[in-house]
Design a binder for these strands. Structure first.
Lengths: 337, 337
DNA sequence: GTGAAAGCGCTAACAC
DNA sequence: GTGTTAGCGCTTTCAC
């Protein structure tokens, strides 16, 4: 491992100057900077991140805490965050809290607090007040993605508005018996997301002069299989069958499409289906949906954090804008017969 | 931030003893250890990982390099690796090489070599000899998952054997016109995986006295949509239609099932379908498949690495066993009519 | 703009 | 089994 002093010697300057030249920040004459960079390149010098961190207090590393990794939303957010971090010279340390409470405590105690990260992004994770307080006490910026954390800046789409938009699409097509597949109570890893989407749905109905009927609501678990089951319940009944289904996620919506097919129905002729997400499979299934852009959410989270770590160095554009969403009409929605 | 000397003072011992007691390794009298642990707990002391790393040369962190994150295989391997690392007090730093070659070089130059990780796991990534050499020069253990890297220990299922097993299942049911959907040339992020699976398929056929026919092979891109397209080509023909399809991945196999349905065929009555993976959606679609266990592969990779980092501390059980796989018969395969 | 030197907070020899 | 002490390799005041 070649160290900073070798570079200094070769460049004919002091180690302090090497440090300044390479970190780019301070005032170094262009000539010196070139010399130093040449020397560093020649020797294949790379800073020791530990030494650098110990001396400066900066880790150039941010922690990302997720409840799952193998779901489209989470891995997409992580991907967006990772890319943006990389471009800014930061590493991403991943904490997957799939396990139970003990694992979670352990992550907090032994990892996050170990001075390993400069900041943390919590994805769809409701941190306790204590956890938030400890992070703040350490001066670590924190941002949430996918649900509000009390007292913490969080990036989410407006679930009520999104659900309303989806429902209104169906209403505009002429549907009036619109069912909704939402979350079940067990599904509470996140923040009232199912509830908010249901509220938006009911809001849109009410505004259109339609009374939301409890029998048109089915809970499910946000999986394709769950959506399939729920849709069969909805579409199998003899009376009052819905002409359209609004599922709270694309995976459930795809389950609905498959359920309809298995019942011999044709989508969208016999039933329209719309979801939320714009999941990678949505296009294949011709699913109309409200797109959210998780990669963009990951990027935005990083930008906020970097801005807090280096005030004024990043353009604040969009730091306080709500996350965008967008209706995408494909072939799973149409006018009722 | 409370430091080690405060703990030392409170416990009435030296900092060296605190370090020893807390790291567990060295010989410390039980009584002292208890005192130290109490003091540390009382003060809420957590080691500064940077200081510890700088002094010891250990990072307690391993780098995981993936080409994608939002695919079932990769996120599952990462999940398995993460869990095992966490249990052993290690962090996982993720490098997602989704971007192009420049990004990749940057990861190598500025991140992996920065002394940030003790070892690296490369998932389905063919490292160049130069990359491998540099890692070795730094003394960083490296293990691959999902494909052979020259001169590096790699964990994979035996793709030839897996494909053979799948094909033999179909043969045993009485099929003889068995099509195969494999990878297209563009799909080379990995190591001849499509080729090996095709070899296994052809081997099984040949062994059963059947000549592999080129017209029963269709390339695709390992996605559901790709499998769907390929299956339509296979099943739409007027003559010589296959009675069974062996797809090189579950996602493609699911595409086959959907294609068959859209053509008015019933699976498995009109066509049998088998995949490889045991993807999370396989059960929902009743897909017969050869399961591989990516989480287990991630765990195994970590165990090998930890064993190299701390020789003799881990049981070597299974370090050199090939990765397991297993035929899972569901409802997508049956005897031909 | 550049250099000298004092740490950053721990670990690991080495001595006892 | 425990204490003393010399670094680990940088960054950052503080001078100049």
């Amino acid at each position: 491992m070649v160290g900073i002093d070798e570079v200094a010697r070769l460049a004919g300057v002091s180690t302090a100057t090497v440090s300044r030249a390479l970190s780019g920040s301070a005032h170094v004459s262009p000539a010196t900077r070139v010399k130093v960079e040449a020397a560093a390149g020649e020797l294949g010098y790379v800073v020791s991140s530990t030494a650098s961190s110990l001396a400066s207090g900066r880790m150039k590393n941010i922690g990302v805490v997720v409840p799952f990794l193998n779901r489209w939303f989470f891995s997409s957010v992580v991907e967006g965050a990772q890319q943006t971090l990389l471009r800014n010279g930061y590493d991403l340390t991943l904490y997957n809290l799939t396990g139970g409470g003990e694992e979670r405590r352990s992550v907090f105690e032994h990892f996050l607090l170990r001075q390993r990260v400069d900041a943390v992004i919590a994805i769809s994770l409701e941190l306790t007040e204590d956890e938030v307080a400890r992070l703040h006490a350490l001066g670590k910026p924190l941002v949430g993605v996918g649900g509000p954390i009390p007292g913490v800046r969080t990036l989410t789409i407006d679930d009520v508005a999104v659900a309303r938009l989806a429902t209104e699409h169906l209403l505009a097509l002429g549907h009036s018996r619109i069912a909704h597949i939402g979350g079940n109570k067990a599904f509470d890893l996140d923040f009232h997301l199912p509830t908010n989407r249901r509220i938006g749905y009911e809001y849109a109905l009410t505004e259109a002069g339609i009374d939301p009927s409890p029998e048109l609501f089915q809970p499910a678990d946000f999986t394709m299989a769950g959506g399939y089951q729920a849709a069969k319940q909805l579409l199998g009944r003899a009376h009052n069958r819905p002409t359209a289904i609004f599922a709270a996620s694309d995976e459930m919506a795809i389950g609905c499409i498959l359920a309809a097919r298995d019942l011999g129905m044709v989508v969208p002729r016999d039933v329209s289906v719309i979801g939320i997400d714009d999941h990678e499979l949505a296009e294949f299934f011709g699913l109309s949906t409200i797109a959210q852009f998780p990669k963009g959410q990951g990027e935005a989270a990083v930008e906020i954090l970097l801005d807090q770590l280096h005030p004024g160095q990043h353009d604040q554009a969009g730091l306080n804008t709500p996350m965008p969403f967008e209706l995408i009409v494909r072939s799973s929605t149409a006018r009722p017969q």
